[in-house]
Amino acid sequence: MSDLSVDLGFLKLKNPILAASGTFGYGLEFEPFLDLNRLGGFVVKGLYYGPREGNPPPRLVETPSGLINAIGLQGIGVEAFIAKVLPKLQALDTAVIVNVCGASEEEYVRVVEALDAEEGIAACEINISCPNVNKDGACPAFSPESTRAVVREVKRASRRPVIVKLSPNVTNIVEIALAAQEAGADAIALVNTFLAMAIDVETRRPKLGNVLGGLSGPAIKPIALRMVYQVASRVKVPVIGMGGIWSGADVLEFMIAGARAVQVGTANLVDPDACLRILGEVEDFCRRKGIERLEDIIATVKT
């Protein structure tokens, strides 16, 4: 039996598979379909301080091997999360990571401070990269300066490790990752979705209520992998890779490129037990290749 655990330094995971924020609800939605305790962990849907309305429908468009979404971070807010959801998650034996959103630096800090008083949270993932809440997909992760500003404030406020989730919609992803690291990020997660669009040719209307959305799914995997490789080659903090992971082979690709852990996103929507299928495929690979410690394959790409 191979050792599948991975160590992020601040957090040891029983295996490298995390379910990605926005595709896994608050975790509980998946209980009918899988044993949450078998996951490396999961990242709950992004939380602002208060409840959030989200965007008008249509919110989803299917594209070849991809999905464009413009949900707009509809959600219950951190107070309702703490009161109604967190007590149920505290009973789990897996890493629960909370995705933190904010319309301003102050709001990120307020959410983190509210969570700081609670137990049962392994880390905060700071969402500075949602493409669906501002005009033209703008977000703090678009520039090193605004990345640094949010991360610095959150780090100052939080007693917990901070994972910073980056946007792929930038010219130089390494520059942004280095800015996050410099501001104190404990880990870098990438990538969020690619800013995208689809048009109905009959009506000439955008297929999404929000006009623009974020593309995820296997369609984006090669670009996400390239970005993870570039960032992991340059930063010292652990990198959590994601973007279109659909199989065990995809997980291994991200890890060989330098990711210490991965997140599975869109696949969860199609197969609520996708994380466990993928985990099984990683296990099979290790057995077949005689790999005793999965960590040994991290950043071993032969270039």
Binding site: G25, F30, G54, P57, P58, L60, N69, N268, L269, P272
Partner: peptide, 16 residues
């Protein structure tokens, strides 16, 4: 009737 992402409440893609 609606297009849906997951069908079980996780993605918030189908709303009315």
């Amino acid at each position: 009737e609606s297009r849906m992402g997951c069908g079980f409440g996780a993605c918030w893609g189908c709303v009315q």
